[in-house]
Nucleic acid binder design. Sequence first.
DNA 1: TAAAAAACATACCTACTAGTATTTTTTATA
DNA 2: TATAAAAAATACTAGTAGGTATGTTTTTTA
Lengths: 200, 200
Amino acid sequence: MLQEQKSEFTKQTILNESFKLFYKNGFKTTSVDTIMKTTKLTKGAFYHHYKNKKELGLAVISSKLQERVFKGMIEPLQQTGNVVDILENTFSERLKSFSLHEKKHGCPTNNFINEIGDFETAYQMALKQIIDRWRDALIQLLERGKAEGSIKKTTSSEAVAVYLISAFEGVRGIRKLYDTDVILDQYIAGLSIYLEQIKN
Amino acid sequence: MLQEQKSEFTKQTILNESFKLFYKNGFKTTSVDTIMKTTKLTKGAFYHHYKNKKELGLAVISSKLQERVFKGMIEPLQQTGNVVDILENTFSERLKSFSLHEKKHGCPTNNFINEIGDFETAYQMALKQIIDRWRDALIQLLERGKAEGSIKKTTSSEAVAVYLISAFEGVRGIRKLYDTDVILDQYIAGLSIYLEQIKN
DNA sequence: TAAAAAACATACCTACTAGTATTTTTTATA
DNA sequence: TATAAAAAATACTAGTAGGTATGTTTTTTA
């Protein structure tokens, strides 16, 4: 294989395995040794491609997490159609689509936020960018709804966006404590009540 | 000092210092050594009073965290008065009352949930109890509101309770990423919109 | 095809981890 | 006040952490 391709492949392998392990066991509590054991490479390879564990953490946030939130929660907002339907579908369908693994371990982005969002500025900023983009996409959609007349003009798009994101991330944490989906169903019912209020 | 009092005092000291350190730096990443350094006692004292770190973790959850949620979020629900006002006050006043430290580090219970809620059954059950009690208290209040006519009889109390808790815990995590309270203000505005919908 | 450079492997270092074994000190009781 | 028991201190273990120094292999390029 070409050197450049090989190098890129290794870097991506480390990134992908890191993401999985961080998701399953936490960032701080996953060691570089553990990561490299799963990639079947050695520490030498790791420190050749990444300066240190912090750099890897930032890479996971700004590529893997960013992409996950974008594909799962932002892109679906950009469809055409009734704004309230899009909101209801995006939030509830996403929840329903999760695997057992994803239900058990919560939202990887939210896990990072809660684990290291108060730890170092670099992590904080990288994570903030994800939430800001998500919030902005929601605001944009809500504004479209207002313009089209499907959303009450008096509602604050910022407030609704923040409340929607908060509740979604919150329930993904709380679901960790339960073995059933009852809590998710109640969340979805609670979401409907909310959307009813902003509907025109 | 009496032996019994002294023993109890030491045990409580370890518990209190642990709570503070777990809150600030996380459970898994706070070592027994670090805890005992702040108490100015030694490892011998720790392992005399606690079987292991897991037992300490469970003690922190079922006493310190339980108590915190009870005093801050459950007790205020049990006042007399208009149900919607009580809900709005409890959630928004609590947020406004937080110190900078509490804003920076989020909700200690939610931090535990996200860090070890998917880790071991023992932790899971202890944390679940806190959330269940909180949810039950909210449901009870909402049912009172229905009986009194201040809350729409058609709304699902379970759904509203879960959504309110989720959003509150969610925003406490997200606030970690910001240096200002804007996100909290938007949450409060978002909460108002929600309560408007369940009002009769 | 030889030398340079990139990719990766091996061995190691220091600091820290939960937990244990043993000893000393303090308090209670007969 | 001697003895037992509880509380706490000291010293240690085996394992893990992030990171480095250096060696070997593979690929590129002149």
